[in-house]
Every structure is written in C-alpha cells, then in structure tokens.
Amino acid sequence: MSGHHVSHHVAPKSLYYLIFALLMIGTAVTVIVAYFDLGAFNNVVMLTIACTKALLVVLYFMHVRWGTRLTWVVAASGFVWLLIMFGFTLSDYLTRGWVGGTLR
C-alpha cells in the first residue's frame, strides 16, 4: 500500500501548556460546582466537564486532532459501544417501574 506516512505533526509546546491549563481549570470548576446542590443538574455539569476534559486529552495529548480518519473512527467506536451498553441496559432498569413492567 502506498502512502504509509505517519502524520509527523509536532504540536507546539505552548499548545500542550494551554491544554494542561484548561484541564486544571475544568477540575477546579468541577470541585466548586459539587458544593452546590443543583439536583440532577449536578451530574449534568460534572459529566459535561469530564467529557470535555477527556475530549481535550484525546484530541491534543493523544494527537487524534491530527490523526487519520481511521483513528477518529476507532477512538469514537469505543465510546459509542459504551453508550450502546449503557443505553440498552438502562432500557431494562428504567422501565421496570412502568405499568406491567416485569413478568412477575
């Protein structure tokens, strides 16, 4: 196969420092928000920040930002499959309380 050249993209150090700063800020915000009782919204904020942090790590520290399309697909597939597993399992747990939810 032709074109076997790794993307030798060298990110500037300043970009890494910026990502690091964003990750630290995200952590601080998570901790602060946790002190306020926002009901279910606590989880939304917490997971949004965590997903953003994870995305930053994947895109920049793990170089997916400059990766091939295949790398994007592989990286995404793990999370998609996780959501499939969560979603279908919860389709059981969250509907058990419905009318006639279980066979027993």
Partner: peptide
Amino acid sequence: VAGQSVYA
C-alpha cells in the same frame, strides 16, 4: 424471564 422489564 429473569426479571427484565418487558419493555426492554
């Protein structure tokens, strides 16, 4: 028949 929700 293991107790799973019928909707699932």
